[in-house]
Every structure is written in C-alpha cells, then in structure tokens.
Nucleic acid binder design. Structure first.
Lengths: 377, 377
DNA sequence: GACTGTTACTATAGCGCTCAAGTAGGGGTG
DNA sequence: CACCCCTACTTGAGCGCTATAGTAACAGTC
C-alpha cells in the first residue's frame, strides 16, 4: 500500500489526526458546518454539503467516537453480556449464529457489538450499570431469560434501551423478541404423532430457563390434546445429562417410541445412548431436537430439528434493538407526569416462527440424499 | 420541554452525571488533583488521595471513557475481527473457549473486547484501519493466520499494537502466540505408532491456513523418521469434506489403520463414515483429532485429541496483548531513524505446549469410566 | 538571606465534536 | 421600502477528562 506519503503533515504524535477543523479550513466554512454536513443534518446547502463530504473523503477523515460521545451523540455500540460458564459458549451452535446475525445488521448501521462474559447474574447487572453509567453503549441485548429473572427489574430501573431475547412474558416492561416455543413444540409433537408415535418423551434442559418451562407446558398440553402419552424427563443442558436422562427413559416399563431433546448436543448424546443400547434410530426410537445445527445435519441419522434460524433471530434482535435505541433518542425524557407504569403491557414484542426440518432420525426416507438441505438463515 | 423534574440541573440530559469536578468541589481541590488521585499518579499527598477516592466512591463516580479517550488516555478496549462465514463460529468449540479466555484476562484489567464479523480479509483490514483511526481500540488480536497473509503487512503498516494468533513464522514483525503444532503432531503420530500403527492418514483442513501446512510438514517428517507410512488427504474444514475424505481413504488398496483429523467436527464426521462402513473404531481404524471439545469427550468412542486448552490459549493471548499495548504506550514513536525492518526477527513469541488426551478412539482401555476427564483449561 | 530543590498542589489549555443561539443575506409580502 | 421569514451559515460554549505549565510553601545548602 504505502499510504505513508499523502497524509502526514506535521511532526510529532503518532496520529496527526484529521479533524473537522481541517476540513472546515479547506472548505472555507466553520467546523459546525462540517458537522452538519457529514451528519446529514439540515442547515447547509446541498452544494456545500457535497463539497465538504468530498473534502472529508479526500482527507481520509474518520470521526472520533470519543469526541462524539463526549458531545452527547450516540456511541454506536450495543452490548451483550453472557453469564455462563466460559466454555459453554463453544458448544452452542445457536450462539455463534445468533451473534453473526446481530453483527450483520449492526455492522451495516455502523454499530459495533461489545461482549462480556461474566460468571453471575449480579456481575451481569453490574456490567449493565457501568456500561450505561460510562456511556459505553447505547443499548443492550439480554439473553438467557429465566423465570423470575432479577435482571429484568434491574434493567427496568436503569431506564435505558434494552432488548430481551426470550418470552413471551416474564420480560416486564421491556421489549422482547422470542421464538414461539409453543408453536415449535406443536410442530414436533404433531410430526411425531403423525408418524404413529403414541408415547413421546421430552428430555428437558435446565428448568430455570424460561423457554424450558414454556416447552414443558406446551408439550404436556399438546400430548393431552392429541391423546398420546407425554413423558417429561428433566436433565441439565449438557451432553452428559442428556445421556443419563435417555438411559433412564430406557428403564421405564413402557419406554417412549420417540424422544424430543432440548438441544442438538443433547440429541446427539441421547442418540448415542440409544445406538449403544442396540436400539435403532428411528426404527426403535425416533429422535428430534429443538435446536438445529450443522452437527445435527451431518450426523447419521441426521436429526429432525426445529430450524430456529439463529442467524435470522440475531438479525431480528439487532433490528429491534436499533429501533429502540433510536426511539429512546427521540424522547429524551420519558414524561414524568401522568400515571405510573402505564406502558407496562403495551410494549411491542416480536416472535420468530419456528419451522420443522424433517430428517432421518424421525423419518428414514428423509436422509436419502447427502445432506445439502436447508442451511443458513 | 418541561425540564422541571427532580434531578436535572440544566437543559436536557437524562443523567446528571457525576464528574471529577463534583468530586473536586467536595474535596476542596481542583479537578486536576482528582485526576491525579484516581489514576494513581504522583502529585498528590496520600492523605488527599484517599480523601478524594473516598469521595469518588461515595458519589458513585464512574469515569467517562469518552472523555478519557478524547484527552489521550487509552480506551481500554481491544478488538478482534473474524473473517469467516457467519455460522462457522457456532461450530467451533475452539472459538468460544478462546474468547472466554481472552475475556477473563481482559475483564480483570478492566478492558473490553470488541468483536466484528466480516466476510473478507479486505474488510477485516479496513476494520483495523478504522478502529485505529477512530481510536476505538488500543490493540487488536488477529486470528486464523494464513500462509502469505495480506493482513500481516497491513497491520505492520498501521504500526499499532497487534497480536497474531498463530505461527511460528509468517507473522512478519508482529508479535505472536501460537500452539506448537509440530509438537502436537509428534504427540499424535508417536502415540499411534506406539499402539502398533504403521500406516497413518492425516485428513487435513483447508490448506491456506498456516497451521494446516505446519501440521502437514510435521506429519510427513515424523512418519518418515519413524519409518511408517504417512498418507496425506486434503479436505476442507467442514464435516462433509471430512466425510468424503475418509470415504476416499477407504478405497485405497492399503487403507490406513489410523486417521488423524484436523478438528473435532471432522473427526466425528469421519468416525461416522467408518462406523457406517462397518469398520470398528479403534478396532478397525483408530481415530484422533487435533482439536478437543466436549463433543469429542462425550462421543462413543470418545475421541483421542490434542488438548489445546483453548481457554488457556485465550488467556495467554490477552496477557500478551496487554503487554504490547502497555509497551506501545511507553515509546510513542518507534524510532524513525536507523535501518529499516531491523526488529523483524527479534519479536518475542510465545507458544503453548500441546498435550495429548488419550481416549477410546485409539485406545479401548481408555473409555472405561464415564467421561469426567480433563475438562476445562 | 539569596540560592536551588522538593512537594503538593492550581490554572489553563486543549482533545474533536455537537448543539443552541445568533446573524447575514436574499426573497417574498403588504 | 420597511417588514418578516427563510436559508445558510457562524459563534461560542461545553461534554469530562488529561497534561503541561506555573506557583506557593517549606526545607536544605553555602
């Protein structure tokens, strides 16, 4: 490249930064005019604006986020904190794709994502507090919604733009986006029932997560509606837990003919237990998962799963959060007068419609061709 | 706008921020003294310092990163950009753990990690350029080192703190940390040979990555040294590629008795191909992987793998990067005079010693107990 | 007692940007 | 032609912090 020549003017500092003052000088206007021009705000003529922008580009000017932030402009950063054991992140197919979807939308709007991994909900709340206190972020997205989640009131208190991933419900007065787990459950159960299964087990992940209980309820309700046996087997979220839970199901007097797992990792672990026990999948017991992943796709038999399209989920979340941030900017002061807490129930919420991807683990005819099916969101 | 409400003094702002001026007023000193005090710089007496710090704490003061950055202080943020297809992130056990390790060290020093996913090396370079131009980050960590990587000269040009993950070599004049892949290769090959294998295949990932070619070379060299057959089979990094490569190996006149895969995902896919072909693992063909993961652990047979301790890797990287950032602060200008490129070879580099975790896929006696073995870094 | 040296601060000037308020100039209106 | 309004700017202040002079007070030296 050797961009070295063109720019560098005077001696010392590493970065003899180009500032709007430089642009202003060259354009024969004041820096305020430059500010208006480059930010697309009214107050300068079109001619001047384009001239200024051209000069800015020519000078290779980059705005200083620090100066902008200090002067009260948005910092163009949103945050996400994860309170999970460190390496869980690595196992989760969902997570990476979700982040990718977030990034895609954020980057397009020149926003960046700041992430932090902490080890407790308290630390998470403290991080939100500091982030907003320091004006490090314009908004946050909160994941892993739990039942009676202490982070909800904390974020409500902060009164800053925040988006909850998960629901419906339990997100207080905060906006949320979520996957319709009840619907997903119906898809799974209906599919299995349509394939003749009358005794279905659900190996459930950690109960404290909201979506787990959502699924539990939907599962039992749907089984009852369709008049089939629904067996609920609790487990943790790990592969090991799923393996144990699966083994336990096999000891039942009347074992299920199909098992639905809460994640791809769990489904895989469970499948191995079945195969090791000499039970064919899906011949002996059919297997399905709430979470799709490349792993679930490549596995033989490939695992029937809910295609949550985590990437799309991330995109939706980012879009929604940016709306919230923008709106928050619109109304600097949230109307102190008037009745309290009126907004509570009227927060707009958006859901993702789950789809079912049928594969060999429930339907032997599905795995004929090498996997090249529905892939990315 | 009715600014009448409780707190706000003047104008609009939502948060009547506590500033060092407030602290100064209460302490009866100037804000400069406060700055010295809270930053642990000499220039104030111990008595005054503690008094100031107490008041700061009492007032719940949080420093403004924007103001600090604007005034020339470090921004306490490091960046990492990933040029990968979006959902690959989700498959990689390594990646999440690596990030976790990074975060652990960074958070402890009050640094944050900024991440960005882009879709090309050019976009990645551009991101670095902008990050530094905008002073958004104090330094960056570069991952997925390739052979003849264009990002290396680009980062060298920028002349900003940057740490390369990968090596040895090919990182130009930039500091790097890496896993000793040659050593890892020796561990794997030696292990297999010691178990009687005389014909070993290596299913290699994408050739453009530096570590792939490192492994290739080390593999062939070691096989020759030990006088065993070494078969190199190229593949991509996907499960599908690995499956195809494995299938191809089976068509050889003299198929290998052991296969080493470049990642856990590949190893799993390959293992399934073997099992489907009626070949027992490790009875028929033994399997090992360069990458450990919970998946590799839970799989039956569990996969023998190199425990790279990605978390530890991340920790080391963060520690090293912070050192570099700190050093960069010390010498504002890297000696313009003197011969060019002299520093080239003298950059300190650190390596992680790989370890071998033997499991059932190469040694049937290893899988007796349920998996509870070496876990996190 | 005029000199230098410390120590412990203060004063002041930015960093680069945004924003509210002010003003010049031109056009339309009565 | 005095009036007002609009556009297209300029002025000036200030965001919260850091950095570099500067100064006052006190001790030690010859």
């Amino acid at each position: 490249m050797t961009t070295s020549s063109t720019s560098n003017a005077r001696g010392s500092g590493r970065g003899q930064r180009v500032t709007i003052a430089d642009i202003a000088r060259r354009a024969g206007v004041t820096s305020a005019a430059v500010s208006l021009a480059v930010n697309g705000r009214p107050g300068v003529s079109d001619a001047t604006r384009t001239r200024i922008i051209d000069i800015a580009r020519e000078l290779n000017w980059e705005p200083s986020p620090a100066a902008r932030a200090l002067a009260g402009a948005p910092v163009l950063t949103v945050g996400m904190v994860l309170a999970r054991p460190a390496d869980v992140l690595g196992n989760e197919a969902f997570f990476g794709a979700f982040v990718a979807g977030l990034q895609e939308v954020l980057s397009a709007q020149d926003y960046s994502l700041q992430m932090k991994i902490v080890d407790s909900p308290e630390a998470e709340i403290e991080t939100y507090r500091r982030w907003f206190a320091q004006r490090r972020v314009d908004g946050v997205v909160m994941v892993d919604l739990r039942v009676d989640d202490p982070r909800i009131p904390a974020l409500e208190d902060l009164g800053q733009p925040a988006l909850v991933i998960g629901g419906p419900g339990h997100h207080g007065s905060l906006p949320s986006v979520y996957v319709d787990d009840a619907h997903a459950t119906h898809l799974l159960v209906d599919h299995l029932v349509s394939h003749g299964h009358r005794r279905i087990a659900r190996v459930a992940g950690t109960a404290e997560f909201l979506h787990t209980s959502e699924r539990d309820q939907a599962f039992l309700a749907r089984c009852q509606e369709l008049d089939v046996d629904g067996v609920l087997q609790d487990a943790g979220f790990g592969a090991q837990d799923a393996a144990v839970a699966t083994a336990e199901l096999l000891t039942l007097a009347a074992p299920p003919t199909a098992i639905v797992f809460d994640s791809d990792e769990m489904a895989l672990a469970g499948t191995h237990v079945l195969l090791e026990s000499g039970i064919e999948v899906p011949g002996g017991i059919a297997v399905a998962s709430y979470e799709d992943s490349p792993l679930a796709r490549t596995h033989r038999p490939a695992i029937t799963a809910i295609g949550r399209s985590a990437v799309e989920y991330g995109r939706l979340a980012a879009t929604r959060l940016l709306e919230i941030v923008a709106a928050g900017r619109g109304r600097p002061q949230p109307e102190v007068t008037g009745g309290a807490e009126q907004t509570g129930s009227s927060v707009e919420v958006r859901a993702i419609e789950p789809i079912l991807v049928v594969r060999g683990s429930t339907d032997p005819s599905a795995d004929t061709a090498p996997p090249s099916g529905p892939n990315r969101g």
